[in-house]
């Protein structure tokens, strides 16, 4: 117990003293995950819109597939990408293995189904009158789509936050395709795994505290968004 208290105290002092190694890891983690969410969210929302508003053969199957893919394990994504990106793999020539781009690819694969499924649920529950009102008022199709997205914005933001929460804390894919290289592909979860295996708990706890704090901030933000959504509707 005293070891844990000591490690926690050291962790807090590491955070306060702005330890450069620690902050590089934190910055890298956010940079990779933010890029992954920025790339995937717009496409996922377009997908979700098509699933919610258009009827086409195979639609139900696609919805079921996205719902299933939500729970795909990060290590499985990591393994698959590793096999694809390794020198002997079909995408080996791209030389992406053990790069931030590979980590971003892994995180996109992980958050995309979650973003589609949650955005679809949000758009599906958006009042049909929004679409009908927009087009009956003469809005062009693109403008009408933007209107529906605007009216569903609280649910869509909740989906994006949930997607970000999923990838910022995943270790399996980042470890396998990133390689945990210091100052390049070492992010918070892979650093925690490494520091713990070395017995260096202070830095692990410090990084864990950052993740917890981030989870708290995201959830508070989500509560505020949902609160505003309830107030408006």
């Amino acid at each position: 117990m005293s070891d844990l208290s000591l490690a926690t105290t050291q962790a807090i002092s590491l955070l306060i003293s702005a330890d450069p190694d620690l902050w590089t890891i934190i910055f890298l983690s956010f940079s990779v995950s933010l890029r992954a969410i920025i790339f995937s969210a717009p496409i996922a929302i377009i997908f979700a819109f098509c699933l919610a508003y258009f009827r086409f053969p195979g639609r139900q199957l696609l919805i079921a597939l996205f719902n299933t893919a939500m729970s795909i394990p990060a290590v499985v994504v990591g393994l698959t990408l590793y096999l694809l990106l390794s020198r002997a793999g079909p995408m080996g020539d791209l030389k992406l293995l053990f790069t931030q781009d590979a980590m971003i690819m892994g995180q996109i694969v992980l958050c995309f189904p979650l973003l589609v499924a949650l955005s679809h649920a949000s758009l599906q529950s958006t009042d049909r009158r929004v679409w009908e009102t927009a087009i009956t008022l003469g809005a062009p199709t693109f403008y009408s789509i933007l209107t529906v997205l605007k009216e569903a914005r609280f649910g869509l933001m909740a989906a994006i936050i949930a997607g970000f929460g999923r990838i910022i804390a995943e270790v399996g894919s980042s470890m396998m395709v990133g390689g945990n290289i210091l100052n390049y592909t070492r992010n918070i979860p892979t650093a925690i795994a490494l520091e713990t295996s070395k017995g260096s708990f202070a830095q692990g706890i410090a990084l864990g505290l950052v993740l917890l704090l981030m989870a708290l901030v995201l959830n508070l933000f989500l509560s505020i968004i949902q609160g505003r959504g309830e107030m408006v509707s």
Binding site: T133, A134, A139
Partner: peptide, 25 residues
């Protein structure tokens, strides 16, 4: 033909924003 629902849906924003909607494009 402009259809008005039994219970109209007003977009989020002000009354002005709603009335201006059809003119914006």
């Amino acid at each position: 033909f402009c259809y008005l629902h039994q219970t109209p849906y007003l977009f989020s924003g002000t009354v002005y924003d709603n009335v201006a909607y059809g003119l914006m494009h």
